[in-house]
């Protein structure tokens, strides 16, 4: 039995359905990311788990027991808000201590745990600071310590890193992942940053317009996106229109001047989806011309105009000579690197 279970949860605001048919089973200790564009219902889903919003339909269960009947104050979840929502009139230690006070933890024990929690997030010595006198990253860590100190059964994080600059965000991601691993706390992270979702989570839930598009490990969702939406949203991708040529035997899949043996069970026009870093320059394949060539340190980014529309190609900067702007090239890739979609959906 899964630890936390959302069973066909839906939320309506008036006539507008914001979350629909949301089913997810989270295992104990798992790190899940809800990933999707702005306004797709991530926060709404998280708030329903937290109990600040009631689902219009469906059930939420924690260890088999119905959560929707439990008041938010009694759910025992830890939440880090996007704005941190620290108590500005309390010091860092008082903030962290608040949840323990509510649980009537004896005072001696309490200060011990507060100190340990602040040390865990790397804020030892900041006990008496007020939030307004801390940097964004420090405030965020206080918020994390405040949520973790009560030993929550589930940790809910609503875009906790979105206010930080790129470098600090990367540091915090590593730290967050380490803390979560050490404590084994079941965690749900809301983000619209695909890199963050991929680098932190065991599984990713890609959402679009209130519905789940795909659930899978970061690698699965990246390499086997089930829909155009997922492949566009997770990293960059190239889509080429292709047809099945049944005149050849065995049948071949053809996109422009690129072709490969057609996989079984596919008919009619399909879309070939291939990641830019899986495309190579060769002697055969899709005819293309390099439009721009951009140097990005550890790799080169090529924007090409192919016979089947525009494409981007990423090549490692491995010291090999690279084609110049304006040069005519041919693009090829291994059939196992691409994913195929028919008009109806995924292969």
């Amino acid at each position: 039995m899964s630890f936390l279970e959302l069973d066909r949860v839906a939320k309506q605001f008036g006539p507008q359905t914001v979350v629909d048919d949301f089913s997810l089973a989270v295992g104990k200790g798992e790190f899940i990311s809800l990933l999707g564009p702005s306004g797709c219902g991530k926060t709404t889903t998280l708030q329903m788990i937290a109990g600040f919003l009631d689902p219009s339909r469906g059930a939420i269960r924690l260890e088999g027991r119905d959560l929707t009947a439990v008041r938010p104050a009694k759910r025992g979840l830890g939440i880090v808000f996007q704005s941190y929502a620290l108590f500005p009139h309390m010091t860092a230690a008082e903030n962290v201590s608040f949840g323990l006070e509510m649980r009537r933890v004896p005072k001696a024990n309490r200060s011990e745990r507060v100190r340990a929690a602040l040390a865990m997030v790397g804020l030892a010595g900041f006990e008496d600071r007020y939030p307004r006198r801390m940097s964004g990253g420090q405030q965020q860590r206080v918020a994390l310590a405040r949520a973790l100190v009560v030993r929550p059964s589930v940790l809910l994080l609503d875009e906790p890193l979105s206010n930080l600059d790129a470098k600090l965000r990367e540091e915090m991601q590593i730290e967050l992942r380490q803390i979560q691993r050490n404590l084994g706390t079941t965690t749900i992270l809301v983000t619209h940053d695909q890199i963050e979702a991929m680098s932190l989570s065991d599984r990713i839930v890609v959402m679009s317009q209130g519905r789940i598009e795909q659930i899978g490990t970061p690698q699965e969702t990246y390499e086997r996106p089930v829909s155009a939406f997922v492949s566009q949203f997770l990293g960059k991708t190239n889509d080429f229109a292709a047809t099945i040529d049944r005149t050849a035997a065995p049948a071949r899949l053809v996109a422009g001047s690129w072709s490969a043996p057609a996989p079984a069970g596919i008919a009619g026009p399909v879309t070939v989806s291939i990641r830019p870093e899986r495309i190579g320059f060769g002697d055969t394949g899709l005819a293309a011309k390099i439009v721009t060539r951009i140097f990005q340190g550890n790799h080169w980014l090529f924007q090409c105009e192919t016979e089947s529309g525009p494409a981007i190609v990423i090549r490692q900067n491995d010291g090999q000579p690279q084609p110049a702007e304006g040069e005519a090239v041919r693009l090829g890739w291994r059939p196992e690197d691409m994913s195929l979609r028919t008009a109806g959906g995924a292969k």
């Binding site: 109990g51 938010p72 608040f98 949840g99 509510m102």
Partner: peptide
């Protein structure tokens, strides 16, 4: 902060607290 009451709520505080 509009979320601050929710934060306190999630930590187990009653409305009066």
């Amino acid at each position: 902060d509009p979320q601050i009451e929710n934060a306190a709520l999630s930590l187990g505080a009653s409305s009066f607290t």
